[in-house]
Design a protein around this nucleic acid. Sequence first.
DNA 1: TGAATACGTTATGTATACAATAGCGGAGGC
DNA 2: GCCTCCGCTATTGTATACATAACGTATTCA
Lengths: 250, 250
Amino acid sequence: MAEREVDRSVSQTVKAQLALRDQILSGSLRPGERISELQAVETTGASRTPVRMALVRLEEEGLLEAIPSGGFMVKAFSERDISDSIELRGTLEGLAARFAAERGVSARELEPLKECLAAIDELLRQVPISIEAFSSYVTLNARFHALLTELSRSPPLIRQIDRASALPFASPSGFVMAQSALPEAQQILIIGQEHHRVVIDAIENREGARAEAVMREHARLAVRNLRLALRNRTHLDLLPALALIKTTTD
Amino acid sequence: MAEREVDRSVSQTVKAQLALRDQILSGSLRPGERISELQAVETTGASRTPVRMALVRLEEEGLLEAIPSGGFMVKAFSERDISDSIELRGTLEGLAARFAAERGVSARELEPLKECLAAIDELLRQVPISIEAFSSYVTLNARFHALLTELSRSPPLIRQIDRASALPFASPSGFVMAQSALPEAQQILIIGQEHHRVVIDAIENREGARAEAVMREHARLAVRNLRLALRNRTHLDLLPALALIKTTTD
DNA sequence: TGAATACGTTATGTATACAATAGCGGAGGC
DNA sequence: GCCTCCGCTATTGTATACATAACGTATTCA
């Protein structure tokens, strides 16, 4: 290569993958749109080989769809797809919580979870919650869910939950942001925090069924609220992931 | 290319992926072993580009693991990983059954499931079951599970179940074959068939909770039987997927 | 005028050449 | 004799050239 500036700090494949994901989630590439390799080469700065690797990975991630005749297009999701994805993740997290409860978790392992819980409590004390505090909440909430998943000590399950969270609207942060568009947002966050508290208690007391049930309820609540949020699309800008929703009729 | 014979009926990428998967599941490549691209090029007949694409896909499938310094190795699974994978799939199938029941399924859609059921009944009438009949059973059972998954009408869930079944020991056929090593194999198949019957009945009557519960029980039974089967490894040759189990201590 | 076919252009699939890095082995010094 | 450092080799990461297939357009025939 003569003139192209290459950043050698990360692999070209990873760079291309991140860049393309950004383009998809920011809405630069619209759902259903075909992704041209050549165009991707220009926008990402990598050459065709790493771009193709990135495209394959993004397809596996669920953001792209292979076109039978060749190439890839941005996947389009219906509202139903999105709520199913959330319920799916809730079911998997429920299983993780059950595993954690049934297999036993030491007090030391629960410590980080409880710290998360306390930190979130602190944030929610603000009424109404500030933008900065809400942002911290999103981070802490994602951390709580990740830690809970880890407690299952089941690599196959952890892997699957990670996959289920790859779709941005199915990630903990994703739907929290969607819910924030609702007027009763703060009340929702407080209920969610209550769920968090219950699941930890259930795990501590080795009540697998209760731990599982509360995580599933947690997800069902999220689904209900997402539906409401999608009705009044006033704060749509808060959820860039919605760029993936089918614009055509569903 | 001058001398290399290329089969143009399928893409080189797919050809390489299938060939490599075969090598892994047949045990030619042992768990933990690094896969050399050059070696894969020689054994698959494709060139490095499609081989690399195949490796990425197999990693996403869960058969390979990326090595931090570069390249891929065959993933190794513990017995716990395997039973968790089965329970995981059972949980997802349970959700699929629930969706089917709650969302309603027409009699016409249930027809193929019932045909499967009847065909399996016919096979199980043989005591003891012949090798050929058992082979048909494996196929029909896989078909039943696939049809049931489809009934959920939830693309994200179907996709996730497919992913969970990618690991051969977590596929319907995989653990049926493992169970066949047990002396009470036929009895197990009959109980499984009973589960199939119940889930259809529950879906017909729109009993979501019951449909979900029976599929989870179905998986838990499979886990118990797999554990037993692994104890007396007499018929190990029936389950090539076990090539993936860690040979080292777990 | 419309439809069908053929040709050209463009994009993807494949192969290979080149670059860089990591791992290994040998040699030299402490 | 052992440890360390340097260099070589082997393997992966990247780039690009070439082949092939698909799509669109234009022209011709009915």
